[in-house]
Design a protein around this nucleic acid. Structure first.
Lengths: 207, 207, 207, 207
DNA sequence: TATGAATGAGGGTTCATTCAT
DNA sequence: CATGAATGAACCCTCATTCAT
């Protein structure tokens, strides 16, 4: 079997195992066995457990960001539509590749520095993408509407965090389609943001 | 040193270590050493590594939910104000006890069934609290405004997810006060939700 | 509570625990707890785990030897009758104080259930083999000679026990050949058995 | 080194160590070191300490039962002769593989020297008592009947061993009284001994 | 007399990693 | 290209034993 294919196969299995057991909980033994090869091959191809995990991480991050970007790029004429398309792609991706998302996002602590850095990098890439769309969408609303980089980043964090958490909600409501979830989220956030930019501010005293 | 105090001290240290290394990555040895005692004491007082982690989990969950509830209860006349107060308490809590939050929320996989159950329970408690406020807030808007349980749960997930993610944003913007973050989040979400309930729906076609 | 009584109480409990778990399997913690006192008291009175076990051992040995000697001395006019009385005292003692005998003679208990089962199985296999030969041998002696299964099992136990014990004797008499030992044992047991089947019964009164 | 051979080697060493120290007293570390390998190999091949012990147990039990059965089957025309052959094989086996027998039947060894000495002392006291009665009983039979010290000790060992083993039989037959058991044992042994002293000797050829 | 608090040492078990073939 | 055999290091946990009170 050619090297590339073997490598892909190993990483495929590794993503599943890492998602199920977490980084420390996963054992190279189990991954090798499920991949149907011997342990030394894993080390020959991927160097170490950390290298294997990094490869998983990068591949899945690329896939996700790719899906997001692809959908956003082809998603419509306005940034608003592109954001919608990107979020939709995100929810669709997570619905179909739950393991990938878990490996990417739910490994917070317990990781070596190198891994933590890679995780952070992957997250930043997603955030940047979203923040870009947000900023562009706002800019389109007219010269009056301004959003600092900090603000855009804030909104991106809120959006991505909400989206992440909603993957749990989706898992508990199997009937819901990614489209439905995305629509709901856009309604919750985007509409409000528009109003805010128009000057309608919420303040505690208003209560 | 009396037992209660020792116990508290051990749990204090354990929260830090679990937050830094994750459940599997943490070693009882390190916890004992940092607590300035010998390993057998940890086992005498907390039974097992799992027992220790569960104790950490429950204590921090109680603290957080308590902070949220306390602030919400005393926070104002309307659910809207109480939600604001609750979120504010959340951000303040996380700003001050980052480790607690990490232990509570960022341990997704790699956990035994008993622990996973406890984590889920803690999460559900927070969600229920938030969802309750959301539902009450909406109901107050008038008889026309209706929100199904599913919808309230959706909003709660989005809110909590956004809040979680914004703790990262806060960590990267040290100058920001919890109040500022909370205000921004309320603006993003609450205002939009009001509009939506008034009939203004976002749709892809609108783009 | 006076010292002597405390000590007796501790040793009473220790005999039970040692009998149930074996020397290594028993923990001083368990003994102290069952005795209703704290561990330091056990060490104050009995010095060490080994000291505790030795005390148990000696006390039970004295009891058993005492019972045997007492019965033998008062048992009759002839050594034969005294031996009968001594053996009777032995069986009565073991029937009533099984734990004592186990501590004195056996430490096999301290095994997990799975192991204990395997040991029992191995023993049963040997017994069955021997009992089969005994029964067959008797049957050959003619139709008049009958041996119930219970009797055959009894003889098998006696034979195997004797053989086991004689391995100690052999170890202490290196010059003895297996043939010599076997011959002696057959003489002791088989000849007697033949006579008994022919109707010659031993009774205490015969003494 | 091929797997089978390593496995055999480990079990060989384990039998020695288990025989010397008992199950709990034995440490996998020591077994691995004596076998000239590292601990993980022991676990790779034998699964666990319990698995290792069970393997020892079964192998030695098979060997012993096999030796007994083989000898018995080929041992002669009558059951009597076959029993003789079987017992002979047993004594020969134990003489040659003392460790095997200890592992199979005794776990008492795992005791410190001081304890082992005390146990031995207790046993000697009982043996001396019984041997004394036996010798006296024989002497009473008349001047012609002589029993050397060695012979008396032999009989005492056989009697005590039989009595010990019969305590198991008693435990499995709750209805039996100590009197009944003692009578049976006296019949089996004493009557035969009397005949033997009168000159009636059992010999294999007699079979 | 009595104990709560504390520990050094060691045991069973697993894991990431590497040779020799 | 591929693997069976092997291990150093570490981890969770328990135990016999001792102080300070």
């Amino acid at each position: 079997m050619p090297r590339r294919e073997r490598e892909r196969q190993i990483v495929d299995v590794a993503v599943q195992v890492f998602a199920k057991r977490g980084y420390h909980g996963a054992s190279v033994d189990e991954i090798a066995e499920l991949a149907g090869i011997s342990k030394p091959m894993v080390y020959l191809y991927l160097d170490s457990k950390e290298g294997l995990f990094l490869t998983c991480l990068r591949r899945e991050a690329d896939r996700l960001v790719g899906a997001f970007q692809g959908a956003a790029t082809a998603g419509g004429a306005t940034p608003e539509l592109r954001l919608y398309a990107g979020l939709l792609a995100f929810f669709a991706f997570v619905a179909e590749h739950r393991d990938s998302w878990v490996v990417l996002h739910r490994q917070a602590s317990e990781l070596s520095e190198a891994i933590a850095a890679a995780v952070a990098e992957a997250r930043v890439a997603v955030m940047a993408e979203v923040a870009g769309l947000v900023r562009a969408g706002i800019a389109e609303a007219g010269p009056a509407a301004q959003l600092s980089d900090e603000d855009a980043d804030f909104v991106a964090h809120a959006l991505v965090g909400a989206a992440d958490s909603l993957t749990d909600w989706m898992a508990r409501h199997p009937g819901q389609s990614p489209e439905g979830v995305t629509l709901r989220l856009m309604n919750m956030v985007w509409v409000g943001m528009g109003r805010v930019l128009e000057g309608e501010a919420w303040k505690p005293a208003t209560g």
